[in-house]
Design a protein around this nucleic acid. Sequence first.
DNA 1: TTATTTATTTACGTAATAAAACTTAATAGC
DNA 2: GCTATTAAGTTTTATTACGTAAATAAATAA
Lengths: 377, 377
Amino acid sequence: MINLGYNERRVIELLRGRGGMSRIELAREMAVSAPTLTRLTSSLLEGALIVEDSESRPPTGRGKPSTAVKLNPEGLFTVGVYFNPDDIRICVADLEGKIRAEHVQELDDHSFDHIMGVASPAVEAVIKQAGIDRSRVLGCGLSFPGHFSRNPGHVFQIQQFSSWHDIDVNKDFDDYFDMPVFHENDGKAVVLSELYYGAGRNLRNFALIWLTYGIGGAVVVQRQLYRGTNRNAGEFGGLFPKSHPRPSGQDLCNLLSTQGINVRRLREIDESYSDHPAIRGWLDRATDQLRVLSLTVARTLDPTAIVFGGSLPDWIIRHFVEHLGSLEILGEDFHVEPPEIRLSAMSDKPHLGAATIPLYRATTPSYYSGRALKGWA
Amino acid sequence: MINLGYNERRVIELLRGRGGMSRIELAREMAVSAPTLTRLTSSLLEGALIVEDSESRPPTGRGKPSTAVKLNPEGLFTVGVYFNPDDIRICVADLEGKIRAEHVQELDDHSFDHIMGVASPAVEAVIKQAGIDRSRVLGCGLSFPGHFSRNPGHVFQIQQFSSWHDIDVNKDFDDYFDMPVFHENDGKAVVLSELYYGAGRNLRNFALIWLTYGIGGAVVVQRQLYRGTNRNAGEFGGLFPKSHPRPSGQDLCNLLSTQGINVRRLREIDESYSDHPAIRGWLDRATDQLRVLSLTVARTLDPTAIVFGGSLPDWIIRHFVEHLGSLEILGEDFHVEPPEIRLSAMSDKPHLGAATIPLYRATTPSYYSGRALKGWA
DNA sequence: TTATTTATTTACGTAATAAAACTTAATAGC
DNA sequence: GCTATTAAGTTTTATTACGTAAATAAATAA
């Protein structure tokens, strides 16, 4: 229906995260002429991806006052499906990253059939519940923990999903959703929502450290998700061998279990545990490990910020961020600004990350190939 | 004279490092039509940046045989100036990364005035010596060790260059060279020549670990030098605090000095030292440290390869590469290919790295801005 | 020989862009 | 108030980059 060319995508990128911009501002930032911007916005206006901002800002001086354009939140919707060993979450999100409707339920059966059996009707249900125009749904993103194996398409390595051995994630999801389907590892999906709507909104380069049962993460370089040669960039868990104590949820569960405490889900570890001496020790050791990791990431990637999040209980992640300290003090020889440590804005909505995947694919300028996109409708 | 537009640059990128390609092959790889490729090559042919390959390859079957085009080594030249506390090296390089003429001399006076006093006439001398068309010289790249301080443009941090405090590297070089001037930290410059002509020739993502008096490095992501937010990406030295033993040349010199051995330049440490027990111990420890660094880089960046080089004596760098071992065996939980460990092809020609900077700036597609480049002549 | 195949070029139409000119809507100065 | 000035945005026009279709070139296959 609408062609999102390279420069149309750049307009969307610039408008995202800002309240609104005049065409002249956009033209300046994009280094194109004003007439070009008129054309770009008129095509986006026609497709209802942007709207003119009615709120006329107080004129700044002489001359015709500018009329701002902004993204139309109703312009495009995406569906996100996220699951982990504990639960599955499905949402519809709008173009501003607002969750319009969601469905959350616990998971006990981790088989592919069961999870798809939940996801497929739930996607239709949340679309209905959100009361949105079905034709404006761009696609569905799925995200879940797990690395990719050397056998392309096959996930791997999460004990609870061991029955997935024969699933080809590049094909087998498609049948369950009546729209284009995309998938991504959980941390890499979350970093997309962080990039668009969260702690990375204004950053060109940053890293996410994503703490769940395992340890994941993702790297954003020049406002692009960087996957690495084998889709393994930012998989920081690899720096902490599973055979050793590590700052992961599973490691904490194992510790609790030696203390006679058995939790079934990570969220059951509420703040009341913070006084337990064994947990206090675990927190100190894990904080130290994450501090080393942060310094490592700072030196290797020189990001503007390092963002911490995940399905570990919120109070634990907050403890990490508050006790890491300033990297400037911790690291010797910081001749330039060390990265800032930030708390993720997405720990409680990883499904928004999944919903961001289709948007990322459709609106990132560098994904534009060819003269005209087939269009999302 | 010639406009290097976006797609002309892509052609150059594709031709670089390959013997020659037919227009049809180029068109396929670039996903443009054959007529477009005719236009692109005709403009490059006119500017003499490429030539048709006379060697007609054996025809593969029916149909008109293709005529390959390849980069014209005489098409463009660049000048590189590299210096470190030991010496200064100046070269003219052609479009194939071949050094056409060079000038090397030892440095004792490290003042800005002295170094420029050497470099400026030497640049003219090597151009003359190479016997090339002066109008085809694209520019001059300078590279040298040193981080950038928070004060933009001011280098910092190398003891021997402490007198440079008031030099603004963004301006003060210009007066000494009658051509466009670019500069870059030594490791980052070397990685460019590695990318074009060396160990990274065929790699999309890789890291360089650059061992000199200090410890530097650089990161290539998607065939682009990634500098990080504060130009500090890949400055791996930061992972080894100066107050602790570290795998750097200065650290080795300090050790030798405690053994009563005083070397004036790194290259004086020849292979005869390899039997010295203290040096053997240093090598073992440094190898262990570099192994940890390699695993860290592998996990963080997921590069295709990690390249080792630098002005440390060649036999030491070879010792590191040979004794690191396979990362696959060393790191637990490698579910995908670990990066390959490679030896730099540029340890003995860091000035080629400097000479690559102007070329990188002029021919990297993503540096193209606007409709037409002002041109390099 | 002639048909077929493949690479490349030529001719031409379309889309994206910038420059110049124009329109619109505000303020500044009288 | 009236007019000049300024700035935003649009229309018009010329240029450029690209793709499609057709033409040409140079080989093999029949």
